[in-house]
């Protein structure tokens, strides 16, 4: 028997044990992350579930915790998201198309690329400062739904651009060449092929961007929209001509995360149940949007085979 064979076996055994231990540790870390997510959810549910009655969605905020609701907050969130999507979707998709399909290899493209990368890393509160200085005071848009929507639109622009680019890049070059080979112009190739085939991927990005925007608080506080709002903005649609109006854009507003923040900062614990209930609504909303995005991505992968 070679000297050391026994030692070697002991060594190998020890290493195998290390493997098993580490695997346990890794699984524990994973479970811990999942557990924290669950704890967060359960904590909110315990505190806030009792408040999630229909009235909660139909009442304005109030000085009495038991009567306060999130009517103005969720309506505000919906309207702000409308503006955000209307701003970020066309601009982001167009910028993504330009970068993937049109951009020449030159300094201008580099500058745009660097800016998109950089914007993705800018903290959200900086967008709030930009909006405060530029939109609120320079352009005098006030602390309005329009300002908030544009602010969040700028914030999620990099998300939309990046996901548009990824979706477009997944369209095989052979498909583009087939269309070009038939005499399609660049814009026709983009409009007839590249865009339709990457819609699901682009939508995924837009939904993820919006789910981030709907829970975003800091930039909205920064533009100064932390006020007591117990009314609804003018309705965007009406029964009398001209049926659609845009007065709501310049209306003061509140949104769900702001309402929640507002309730957290009250010392009265009764308000904290309200905060938990609003948080529950927010978490369910974002989880739902994320799940939708994941499902869309999965479906897109399954549907189109190249």
């Amino acid at each position: 028997m070679e000297p050391g064979t026994h030692d070697l076996r002991v060594l190998i055994g020890r290493q195998r044990l290390c493997d098993v231990l580490f695997e346990g540790l890794g699984a524990f870390m994973l479970l811990m992350s999942l557990f924290i997510l669950a704890a967060l959810f359960i904590n909110l549910a315990i505190e806030g579930l009792a408040r999630l009655q229909p009235d909660f969605f139909l009442d304005f905020p109030s000085r009495r915790a038991g009567q306060a609701g999130i009517l103005s907050a969720w309506v505000g969130s919906v309207l702000v998201m409308l503006v955000t999507a209307a701003a970020a979707l066309p601009v982001g998709v167009a910028a993504g198309i330009w970068l993937e399909e049109y951009a020449p290899k030159n300094w201008l493209t580099d500058v745009v690329e660097i800016n998109v990368t950089n914007l993705a890393g800018v903290p959200s509160i900086i967008y709030g400062l930009l909006a405060l200085g530029l939109l609120v005071h320079q352009f005098r848009l006030g602390e309005s739904i329009l300002t908030a929507g544009l602010t969040l639109g700028m914030m999620i622009l990099p998300v939309v651009i990046v996901s548009t680019r990824e979706a477009i890049r997944a369209v095989p070059q052979t498909i583009r060449e087939a269309a070009y080979g038939l005499g399609a112009s660049r814009w026709r190739v983009t409009r007839d092929h590249v865009l339709p085939y990457s819609v699901a991927g682009i939508l995924t990005g837009v939904i993820i961007g919006l789910s981030r925007a709907i829970g975003e608080t800091a930039p909205i506080i920064t533009i100064g929209a932390l006020t007591f709002i117990a009314f609804l903005p003018p309705a965007p649609v009406s029964a009398v001509p001209p049926f659609i109006n845009f007065e709501w854009l310049s209306s003061p507003f509140t949104v769900l995360p702001i309402q929640m923040f507002n309730w957290i900062s009250r010392p009265d614990p009764a308000f904290q149940s309200n905060a938990a209930a609003a948080g529950l609504v927010l978490v369910i909303l974002t989880l739902f949007m994320n799940a939708m995005a994941i499902w869309l991505r999965y479906r897109a992968r399954k549907r189109i085979k190249w």
């Binding site: 789910s211 929640m260 923040f261 957290i264």
Partner: peptide, 24 residues
């Protein structure tokens, strides 16, 4: 399976995390 679930952690609104930090 786990990756998208982990990414949900960074998708939870920060104000909710604030609540979680303060009250849990």
């Amino acid at each position: 399976t786990v990756k998208p679930v982990l990414e949900l952690l960074s998708g939870v609104p920060t104000v909710v995390f604030g609540y979680f930090a303060l009250l849990f």
